[in-house]
């Protein structure tokens, strides 16, 4: 079973965002880039599928040159090889452009399954998996929390409001991962050593935002200073009164 995992390097969720003077990008000094958390579930699921069915796992990343270290982490977890489409300032780029670039690369690769994270935690676009599947003309099940995979098909569960959907699709297919799909493994020391020798191909790509234009990036307006209603349970009555009479939210 040949598996491709789309992986993005993103500012860690602990990052305090500062806007650059250009007004459309964030400051990257002191920002730690990590594997997009949802992509970690995708990588883990891919490695498990390979362990069950054989084959290989290819990591596909589009992003800055600095993403290399996270690609090596994915290889250390157990992926076999990687293709890095190098492109600066792609973080908040239009998903349609990114989908096109990934599509051009993937159609050259033999695959049975594609795994993605359900979204990247920087742009929060939630678009790429479905756009990519549409371009490849394969079925997609997004934001899955469980997957039963055979060499022929995949049955995936996705959470919906107040329930779950169980969807079965024939391979080749794309699945995007929700938290809870699995518990990603840590790379072992031999894994880290082996990762250094695994094939990593780099290609320069260029992109333009074809369908969206970013006008500005701003910090949210500061919160007005809050008010400490009191200390201990004695304050509970006053808080409830405020919520009902002043804030009118209960």
């Amino acid at each position: 079973m040949n598996i491709v995992v789309c992986m993005k390097s993103v500012p860690s969720s602990e990052t305090k965002v500062k806007i650059n003077s250009d007004g459309v990008t964030i400051e990257q000094t002191d920002v730690v880039f990590e594997i997009n958390p949802y992509d970690e579930y995708a990588i883990e699921e891919a490695i498990r599928a390979k362990e069950a069915h054989g084959g290989k796992v290819t990591i596909l990343t589009l992003g800055a040159a600095t993403a290399t270290q996270n690609i090596r982490k994915a290889l250390a977890m157990g992926a076999d090889e990687a293709l890095h489409l190098i492109c600066e300032n792609a973080e908040l780029a239009d998903s349609s452009t990114i989908a096109e670039l990934l599509y051009s690369a993937i159609k050259e690769i033999e695959f049975d399954v594609i795994f993605c994270g359900k979204k990247a935690i920087d742009c929060d676009n939630h678009q790429l998996p479905n756009r990519l599947a549409q371009l490849l003309d394969i079925p997609a099940v997004t934001a899955i929390s469980n997957l039963e995979l055979t060499t022929e098909s995949g049955s995936a569960k996705r959470n919906i409001e107040g329930g779950t959907e169980l969807i079965t699709v024939n391979l080749p297919a794309l699945f995007s991962a929700e938290k809870g799909l699995n518990e990603p493994r840590y790379a072992s020391l031999p894994g880290i050593m082996a990762a250094k020798k695994k094939p990593l191909e780099e290609r320069q790509v260029s992109m333009s935002n074809e369908k969206l234009t970013i006008l500005s990036l701003e910090l949210p307006p500061p919160k007005p200073k809050g008010r400490i209603v009191g200390e201990g349970p004695e304050a509970a009555g006053e808080l409830v009164r405020i919520l009902r009479e002043e804030a009118k939210v209960i």
């Binding site: 990052t15 305090k16 965002v17 964030i26 935690i121 742009c123 369908k211 969206l212 990036l217 910090l219």
Partner: peptide, 20 residues
């Protein structure tokens, strides 16, 4: 249409225009 949407889970707000 000019859109405002949160990015970085709301740590920043992006304004954009859809050109299609």
């Amino acid at each position: 249409i000019i859109i405002t949407r949160p990015v970085y889970a709301g740590k920043a707000l992006i304004k954009l225009r859809i050109d299609s």
